[in-house]
Amino acid sequence: MMGRERILLVDDHEANLVALEAILNPLRKTLVRARSGAEAMKALLRDDFALVLLDVVMPGMDGFETASHIKRLDQTKDVAIIFLTGADGDPSHTFRGYVAGAVDFLTKPFDPWVLRAKVQVFLDLHRKSRQLKEQANLLQRMAGRGEDEVRGAELAAELAQRLVTMEERLCAPEPGESGLGVEAVKELSGQMATARQTCDRLVEHLRVAE
Rank of each mutant, 00 (worst) to 15 (best):
L27S: 07
P91M: 04
D11R: 02
N16R: 03
T107E: 10
D48F: 15
S129V: 15
A40F: 08
V56S: 08
A67H: 07
K128C: 06
T85W: 14
V52E: 00
R28P: 02
E65V: 09
K108W: 03
N16W: 06
R116S: 14
T30L: 05
L24K: 02
H13S: 11
L125I: 11
V57I: 08
L17S: 02
I23V: 14
P91T: 13
K118Y: 14
V52D: 00
V32I: 12
A117M: 08
A102D: 09
D74Y: 11
L17V: 11
G3I: 12
E21F: 10
I7D: 01
F83P: 02
I23T: 14
A50R: 04
R46Y: 09
G89R: 13
Q131R: 12
F122S: 14
G101Y: 02
K29Y: 12
V56Y: 12
L17W: 05
D124Y: 04
T30H: 10
A38M: 07
W113H: 14
S68M: 13
T66V: 09
K133L: 11
D48R: 13
L51K: 02
L73R: 08
A22M: 06
M2V: 12
G101I: 07
G89N: 15
R130K: 12
D88R: 05
A43W: 07
L106D: 06
A43S: 11
A34T: 08
G37I: 08
R96S: 07
A67N: 07
D78M: 10
K77F: 11
I7F: 02
L51P: 11
N16Y: 10
D90G: 08
L24H: 03
D111N: 15
F83H: 01
V10Q: 00
K77E: 12
A15G: 14
A100K: 04
G60Q: 01
A117Q: 14
S129E: 13
A102W: 04
T30I: 08
R96C: 07
F49K: 00
D47E: 08
A117I: 05
W113K: 09
L31Y: 02
G89S: 15
P26E: 06
G86M: 06
R116I: 05
V32M: 03
D88M: 13
F64C: 00
G63I: 02
E14M: 10
K77S: 15
I70Q: 01
